[in-house]
């Protein structure tokens, strides 16, 4: 049974942010780290994240990107309908697929779609999009509270943790129930900051659950440089350098979209 764990999603090949996240989480006393999926996409050198995950024994939930790369599918199943978003998604998918070793692809294929664990008295469910669908977007402004309550009921969990959208948020539900979108460490959260975010889930004052979002600074200039050297789109590099999303904007609901620059 755990008392303090670190959770992150959306690594998107950002191995530099992953290194810093691991360091920071250990420094803050996390007993274990969990990754909620989407190891590839967006960033350079996809194979560099795997040794880190193995070395630090980080349990990983399968994301839609991992499912696609692992099973050799044609696309990332990100669910975009905007032709521009799909154009960039294709570039990034082709690059990631071509640079992920066969061994790592096999590993992605066998990842579990959910992990359950106990944090003090809380039954915690870790998934990628939602417990019912790997690529469901759960945004803060378009997810009703009673919908989340029903998920807790249907999936017999007190705390549900997901990622997939790339923007972290949380909501306390009835009783001891809680929902946390743990965010992504692969790219900034469309907040104009270059840091990326992970989540510390802990028990405070006895049995009180606390989810804390932690910003992580890393060498984003180096990442940008490597992305350029690998020929990845300048639009992606801009996001790393500015903290504002330049692509995949169509899926953002009104409130989240308005907070960004584009």
């Amino acid at each position: 049974m755990f008392k303090k764990i670190a959770l992150f999603g959306g690594v998107y090949s950002n191995y530099l942010a992953l290194e810093e996240t691991i360091r920071d989480a250990h420094r803050r006393g996390a007993e274990a780290l969990f990754c909620l999926g989407d190891l590839g996409a967006f960033g350079p050198h996809p194979d560099r994240v795997f040794p880190l995950l193995r070395e630090y024994r980080i349990a990983v939930v399968q994301g839609n990107y991992d499912h696609s790369i692992g099973n050799g599918l044609d696309d990332c199943q990100c669910g975009y309908t905007d032709p521009r978003d799909n154009y960039f998604a294709r570039i990034s998918y082709r690059y990631t697929f071509a640079h992920t070793s066969e061994e790592n692809r096999r590993w992605l294929k066998q990842l579990p779609t959910e992990i359950r664990l106990q944090l003090g008295p809380y039954r915690v469910l870790l998934c990628h999009g939602s417990p019912r669908k790997m690529n469901e977007f759960l945004w803060e402004s378009t997810t009703s509270t009673h919908f989340l309550e029903k998920l807790c009921e249907d999936y017999q969990a007190d705390v549900i943790c997901a990622t997939h959208t790339g923007i972290h948020w949380q909501r306390a539900l009835s009783g001891k129930r809680h929902f946390v979108n743990v965010g992504a460490i692969g790219r900034p959260a469309n907040d104009g900051r270059t840091e990326v975010w992970y989540t510390m889930l802990s028990l405070e004052d006895g049995d009180r659950l606390e989810a804390t979002f932690v910003p992580v600074s890393y060498d984003y200039q180096r990442l940008a440089h490597e992305m350029r050297r690998e020929g990845l789109p300048e639009e992606f590099v801009e996001t790393i350098l500015t903290g504002w999303w330049t692509t995949c904007l169509e899926v953002l609901p009104a409130k989240e979209r308005r907070r960004g620059r584009f």
């Binding site: 199943q77 669910g79 975009y80 309908t81 669908k133 690529n135 977007f137 378009t142 169509e250 899926v251």
Partner: peptide
């Protein structure tokens, strides 16, 4: 729906 808020089953 507005956009693909629920993706395909995978």
């Amino acid at each position: 729906s507005n956009f693909v808020s629920v993706g395909r089953n995978v």
